[in-house]
């Protein structure tokens, strides 16, 4: 359905924006390495089904490889910055102070409690779905501490937030057309979108009206 396609395109766009930002500017100011590492973990644990060869579609498989590949590549690009632009790297590390153990622990626990089946694959899947919902927090925390961000960085965060927000009408669509109700995805998707709500509001007020992103 249209929402699902737009959502996935928005997700692709966010990654392209991020890669272009890092490659062109040759700096990683305002981008959280911790959030990017969490995404590597999210995709690697979610797409373990690639190993079972029970593929749903070519589209699905290609996208999964794309998300795993680009998330690893982003982390590598950011690590390269340690040598190519040490000032930018140090500045990023100085600001990227969110303690991710407070996300990993609870997500692991939630995965043990809420899952569809008590198997390694399903537990990893559930862990990834919980972790994705909060993976942006180090990034948002960094943003709120520095108070402003480059326009490109805010476009990246917006596109990334929009992707999960668009999955919500997709789930409503699927409920009516296929009678499908995937409770875990829906709940964590709502949680994830809620975490972005504040950012969406400021993005709408400032960036869409041509002003820079600056927190009140």
């Amino acid at each position: 359905n249209i929402f699902r396609i737009l959502a996935d395109l928005s997700h692709l766009a966010s990654i392209v924006i991020l890669l272009e930002t890092i490659r062109k500017a040759r700096q990683i100011d305002g981008i959280s390495l911790k959030t990017q590492i969490l995404y590597v973990l999210v995709f690697c644990t979610r797409y373990l089904d690639l190993l079972t060869f029970r593929w749903t579609s070519l589209y699905n498989t290609l996208m999964k490889f794309f998300f795993i590949g680009t998330s690893v590549y982003v982390v590598k690009l950011m690590q390269d910055c340690k040598l190519t632009n040490p000032v930018s790297y140090k500045d990023m590390m100085f600001r990227d102070t969110f303690q991710i153990k407070y996300l990993l622990g609870p997500c692991a626990l939630l995965a043990l409690v809420f899952n569809y089946k008590f198997t390694v694959l399903e537990l990893c899947w559930s862990f990834s779905i919980w972790l994705e919902s909060v993976a942006i927090l180090p990034q948002l925390f960094m943003l709120s501490r520095s108070g402003k961000a480059s326009t490109l960085t805010t476009h990246y965060i917006f596109a990334l937030g929009l992707y999960r927000a668009l999955y919500i009408p997709n789930w409503i669509w699927r409920y009516y057309s296929e009678n499908r109700l995937e409770k875990l995805s829906i709940f964590t998707g709502l949680l994830q979108t809620a975490l972005y709500s504040d950012f969406f509001y400021i993005y709408y007020r400032k960036v869409m009206k041509g002003r820079g992103f600056e927190l009140p």
Binding site: R4, D8, H11, R46, D49, T56, S57, N60, M63, K64, F67, Y116, K117, W125, Y167, N170, R180, E182, K183, L184, S185
Partner: peptide, 10 residues
Amino acid sequence: SDEALTHDEL
């Protein structure tokens, strides 16, 4: 039930 669901989303 939920167990029958396939993860066909990304």
